[in-house]
Design a binder for these strands. Structure first.
Length: 534
DNA sequence: TCGCCTACCACCTTTGAACCGT
DNA sequence: AACGGTTCAAAGGTGGTAGGCG
């Protein structure tokens, strides 16, 4: 019954999309950092539709500060957290319905950037995209009441530039612009996720877009991080007046705190001591003057009236993007809610670029075959601390205990990145790929990718294959008497054991780009059941 | 030569076990 | 014995830096 309604709704929204449908997002909501899926007039249960869920970005003002300066996120081989961390407040959920929350990070455009003259500039075409990965909130599928009870934090999400990252961190390319997206997935009672009628919606906050870097380029960002990140307290001026003085003096460059000077002295000392064996102090003025030289470049620029565009050139993010989809059992992927594609904009000027060179940034979640991956390491699972943050530790046991546990899972996608020189390739709308493993949807090869059609391995496969097989130590394919995958049942009080699954997906054909990384993942897939936590 | 990346550093917060008192 | 509060050490996160690499 619900499915029938969904079908109707889906068709309606497809129609709206095809006619350039608008979102129902109010301008005020956008300004307030409120993301909401469009309403669905045809529904008889408006309050229980996933489309009605509203999401408010926590600490939006802080995000905006970073955004205005041009947010940068450090990526390291071992993985680095995002700061500000991604936290949201949810409302409008059905208190009794179970949901799964996921985040992915998708390329915001097809450019590589460089930081030149205190602003970000396009430095060429983007590198081939990393295999898209999903970060699943460590809380198991929980009721809407649970998610709405407190802030939902994704602070333990980590970003890496290690293409072979085994920890399930989100893999990014340095010097590229990315956009995190939040996905809310309705968990099916039986299959938890990815069933025939899985509904989900996607929320995007444009303030959270960032450029990935291996070291900070913009000193404004560095200062903002130091000022706001408690872990960076050590880099704050030991005297409270440092920053204040710098502002009073109208200096745009960062003030050298005592710690910074000390570190430089220590570093210089050790370095010089090793090479010269003497004359340490002689290096001090040099260090300082060098620093001032590096940072003393006037930050003003002719376009300073628009800091966002200055630091994030060619930003095409509308205030909010959101997508609501619902999968239908027949293998077709229909869009349930309305969608604003990157091409769908209000101002031709700011988005001209995208029309000229329409990137084919299909959602890894929505438009590309999935492989699944359950994470074993504690780092990758990143659970536990999250509970403190989100308060899930105090959640009603009922919210969680009966929930299928897919904690610590990271779903990975292999995203065929468009080949270079694809100008003119029409934008490919997102398509939902929530399928049941028994209903494998045909894969339409990406027009710009070299991917050979291969078996669908999407979120539905995650549910049916990965959970059943890889996520359980009793692989393969065993189910308990209740019919649930063993993973769904853990002993009361027992810790959430990390699992890893690389066995759920095998690829046919080849991928010419990012082949190495892809093959790596496939390789893991073939040996996934033998994975042991290190 | 230059830009980017990595390993390492010291400092800081967070976390959880151990301990103690009620 | 159970519970709650405090202490402390280990783990982990942070940006800065030198040096390596292409």
């Amino acid at each position: 019954m619900l499915q029938e309604k969904a079908s109707t709704v889906t068709d309606e929204h497809v129609s709206r999309l095809q006619t350039g449908g608008e979102t129902d997002l109010l301008p005020d909501q956008s300004r307030l950092g409120l993301s909401t899926a469009p309403t669905v007039p045809s529904s008889t249960e408006p309050d229980q539709n996933i489309e009605n869920i509203k999401v408010v970005l926590h600490e939006r003002e802080l995000w905006k500060k970073f955004h205005e300066a041009g947010t940068e996120m450090i990526i390291t081989k071992a993985g680095r957290r995002m700061f500000p961390s991604y936290k949201v407040k949810m409302t409008g959920m059905n208190p009794k319905t179970k949901y799964i929350l996921l985040i992915d990070v998708v390329p915001a455009d097809d450019h590589r950037y460089k930081f030149c003259d205190n602003k970000w500039m396009v430095a060429g075409k983007a590198e081939p995209a990393m295999p898209g990965r999903l970060y699943v909130h460590p809380d198991p599928p929980a009721t809407g009441a649970h998610w709405m009870r407190q802030l939902v934090s994704f602070q333990k999400l980590k970003l890496t530039n290690n293409h072979l990252d085994p920890f399930g961190h989100i893999i990014l390319n340095s010097m590229h612009k990315y956009q995190p997206r939040l996905h809310i997935v309705k968990a099916d009672e039986n299959n938890a996720f990815g069933s025939k009628n899985t509904a989900y919606c996607t929320h995007v906050f444009h303030e959270t877009a960032f450029i990935s870097v291996t070291s900070y380029q913009n000193h404004k960002i560095t200062q903002l991080k130091i000022e706001n990140n408690p872990f960076a307290k050590g880099f704050r001026g030991s005297e409270e007046g440092d920053l204040r003085v710098s502002r009073l003096q109208g200096k745009e460059y960062p003030v050298i705190s005592k710690n910074m000077v000390r570190q430089r002295l220590i570093s210089t000392h050790s370095h010089l001591a090793g090479k010269l064996g003497a004359g340490v102090l002689a290096g001090h003025p040099q260090v300082l003057s060098s620093y001032q030289y590096d940072t003393g470049v006037p930050l003003s620029n002719p376009d300073s009236q628009d800091p966002i565009s200055t630091h994030f050139p060619q930003s095409r993010d509308p205030n909010l993007l959101y997508h609501c989809f619902k999968h239908r059992d027949n293998g077709r992927h229909l869009e349930l809610g309305c969608k604003r594609s990157y091409l769908e904009t209000s101002t031709a000027v700011s988005d001209e670029h995208y029309f000229r060179s329409p990137p084919s940034y299909e959602s890894p979640l929505l438009s590309h075959p999935y492989r699944t991956e359950a994470i074993t390491s504690r780092e990758a699972c990143m659970y536990g601390g999250m509970e403190t943050e989100s308060g899930s530790g105090a959640a009603d046991a009922d919210d969680l205990t009966n929930s299928p546990s897919i904690n610590c899972n990271m779903w990975a996608t292999v995203q065929p990145y468009p080949r270079y020189g694809m100008e003119g390739v029409p934008y490919q709308p997102f398509t939902a790929h929530f399928t049941n493993s028994a209903t494998v949807a045909p894969v339409v090869p990406h027009p710009a990718s070299s991917v050979v059609s291969r078996p669908q391995a999407d979120l539905g496969v995650y549910n049916s294959a990965a959970v059943q097989r890889g996520l359980s130590p009793s692989f393969p394919g065993s189910r308990d008497s209740s019919g649930h995958p063993p993973l769904y049942h853990r002993k009361p009080g027992s810790p959430l054991l990390p699992h890893r699954d690389f066995s759920s997906y095998s690829a046919q054909g080849t991928i010419s780009i990012r082949e190495q990384a892809y093959q790596y993942q496939v390789g893991l897939s073939s040996t996934g059941s033998n994975w042991t936590d290190s």
